[in-house]
Design a binder for these strands. Sequence first.
DNA 1: CTTAAAGATGTATATTTCACACACCTTATT
DNA 2: AATAAGGTGTGTGAAATATACATCTTTAAG
Lengths: 160, 160
Amino acid sequence: MRMTVYTDYALRTLLYLGVHADRRVSIREVAEAYGISENHLVKVIHHLGRGGFIDTLRGRNGGLMLGRAPEDICIGDVVRHTEEDMALVACMAPSMPGEKRQAGAGCLLAGGCHLRGVLGEAMGAFMAVLDRQTLADLLRPYERRVLTQAAQNVEAAPAP
Amino acid sequence: MRMTVYTDYALRTLLYLGVHADRRVSIREVAEAYGISENHLVKVIHHLGRGGFIDTLRGRNGGLMLGRAPEDICIGDVVRHTEEDMALVACMAPSMPGEKRQAGAGCLLAGGCHLRGVLGEAMGAFMAVLDRQTLADLLRPYERRVLTQAAQNVEAAPAP
DNA sequence: CTTAAAGATGTATATTTCACACACCTTATT
DNA sequence: AATAAGGTGTGTGAAATATACATCTTTAAG
């Protein structure tokens, strides 16, 4: 179990695309908007593209846009997609064949380890919260404000 | 947010001490029982000791024992103690002064980032599950079996 | 059909974090 | 004093992360 900036970038990219749903956005624009590494973001975005969360288009006038409606993008799915071991409690992996743990008399708790069960349950509760949320839920509170702000930006800095 | 073997060792140590509550146990014994590094376990145990979860005694006939009754040892507290950033959603830390994120036009979502809220809620759900569990809950299912097994071990391998 | 813009991909590197080893100190019992 | 136990600090190897760099492919504009 883990949460890295990789997932952070993924979620922020989706939010950015949701806010600017009226056009295609370049990777560079997203990177600059958040002040993060463009090179790294490329991989995140590619990964999101292969997962169907975003639609990428190469070439001139290409760019990114959401692959589905915000209502159909479940935050839990995104996290599961970007954090590989979110589906299982791998971090605590005990009593797996071939592991050091096997030494000695073996795990005292093997054969029904409650630790695993409790941690699994906690993990489930974590994901359940994220599964209840869609991108649309995250976008809703900002819709008005951000759109206004975007309009201002367009006025202030016309397309180069 | 993160779960490491550090916490794994901590929980297993507590379980071991709970099972062998009739006597003091040495660090070496715990390390050998699980086949893990004694050197590393020393630090985990020391940390648990400073947190009051276990009682350590130096010198001859010294060793470890639970610092409180198993019913009074909350699993959530243990995890919070061993995983430093469990109390907050530090991994996603956005819009903190001095961070790179500040570049460009600043975080579009600053001033009420819902990402933070949702992740915080998910985190809360995770910890809530662990907060409902005490060490006694984890020990209960094994009490009979493990004690029996321990007795057998004593018969099979008398003290060296 | 050439060129430029945009994403795709592979390799390399820098940093951080773990897990662990090693050496040495302190405490307490015998 | 000697010995057995925990306490403490430093160092290290491996792995995971985040990022940089270089190059290729696709697409549309001119």
